[in-house]
Write a protein that binds this DNA or RNA. Sequence first.
DNA 1: CGCCTTGTTCACTTATTTGTTAACATTCGC
DNA 2: GCGAATGTTAACAAATAAGTGAACAAGGCG
Lengths: 91, 91
Amino acid sequence: MDDLQRAIEKRKSTDPEFAENFDKGYEEFKIGVLLKEARKSAGFTPEALAEKLNTKKSAISRIENHADDIRLSTLYNYAEALGKKIKVTIQ
Amino acid sequence: MDDLQRAIEKRKSTDPEFAENFDKGYEEFKIGVLLKEARKSAGFTPEALAEKLNTKKSAISRIENHADDIRLSTLYNYAEALGKKIKVTIQ
DNA sequence: CGCCTTGTTCACTTATTTGTTAACATTCGC
DNA sequence: GCGAATGTTAACAAATAAGTGAACAAGGCG
């Protein structure tokens, strides 16, 4: 079971509403997990990334766990600090 | 010249900083244009879409022209009202 | 041109996110 | 288990986006 699967199961067990709606297509949630995985694979702790972004690790944690209510520009900054790019498409 | 090209040229002519940075890869700007094109192809005027989103046409205009500093959830709502889905990836 | 629709911008208020600190939880190595 | 590093959550102030109304600009169409 990979990180994404684990995170989903964990959230399902602690958030009944999420569990109920997951199969209906709540995609937003996954973004935070993608961000977190990108950060880890780039070898950053939340604190290290926070420093690069001139903020604090608590803010990083908030981004990764509530990625549906963040600003697009915040998303861009986060990705840029990892040397990655955010791609937004509409389909 | 399509809408995207036209919009880029217009902004280049009125926003020197944008013009200077465009070729460096400022992708964010394009999102607003994508949204606007999606709205048009779905046959919505700003006012009609605004009504669906319980807001006003001025808000729609703001979203389409300043799409880099909007909330992700706003983006989702906008797309959902058009029967489309926003996809965010990191690469 | 003159009129109507569409679209943009501004100013103001309200709602929400972000920065920050501190407390708490979790994970990992010893 | 214990301690240290990593990660999460809550609360508050400060910054910023969204809601709104009105004035203005641009685009068709008669």
